[in-house]
């Protein structure tokens, strides 16, 4: 067991973890943050995307011990009270989700993308979200949602 200390959605937490425990299972099983989904086991689909120190990472490919000392944001940490984060709001308004399983990952990848590039072109959006897979939407409305979020200054 290894001791880790990190901040998750603004709350400090300390825990002893198995060195082989992946960050995603630490978040889901230890902290009960079930909004982060597991979609593959090969770092391909991005369903498990979270922010580590404001940068999007696939939490299925990071050990919990690697996040020691970091600030982690999951989808649960985006809304402010009842007010959705502008990216969440845009996904809702543009019907950018159907089954919703990939959505937390897409939302966090979008937050990170818009931080790096507040006004992306369609091509930049498509390439920026290349690491996230969706089977339901054909990406059309996801791209529209990112554009809407950019317009809203997310």
């Amino acid at each position: 067991m290894t001791s880790v200390a990190l901040t998750v959605n603004g709350s400090r937490c300390e825990a002893d973890v198995e060195p082989r425990q992946l960050l995603v299972y630490f978040l889901r099983d230890r902290l009960g943050l079930k909004g982060t989904n597991v979609g593959c086991d090969t770092t391909s689909c991005g369903a498990c995307t979270v922010l580590v120190d404001d940068e999007s990472v696939k939490s299925c490919t990071v050990f919990a011990v690697q996040a020691d000392g970091s600030e982690v944001t999951t989808v649960e940490g985006l809304a402010r009270g009842d007010a959705l984060h502008p990216v969440q709001q845009a996904f809702h308004e543009q019907h950018a989700l159907q089954c919703g399983y990939c959505t937390p990952g897409f939302v966090l990848a979008t937050v990170s993308l818009l931080k790096e590039n507040p006004n992306p072109s369609e091509t930049e959006i498509r390439e920026g979200l290349e690491g996230n897979l969706c089977r339901c939407t054909g990406y059309h409305n996801i791209v529209k949602a990112v554009q809407a979020a950019a317009r809203a200054g997310a």
Binding site: T42, S44, I125, R126, E127, C134, Y139
Partner: peptide, 17 residues
């Protein structure tokens, strides 16, 4: 047999409809 080998298209592989 994984998402690495199977060519599930991403947003970068498709246009808007």
């Amino acid at each position: 047999g994984t998402f690495v080998g199977y060519a599930f298209p991403s947003s970068a592989d498709l246009p808007s409809w």
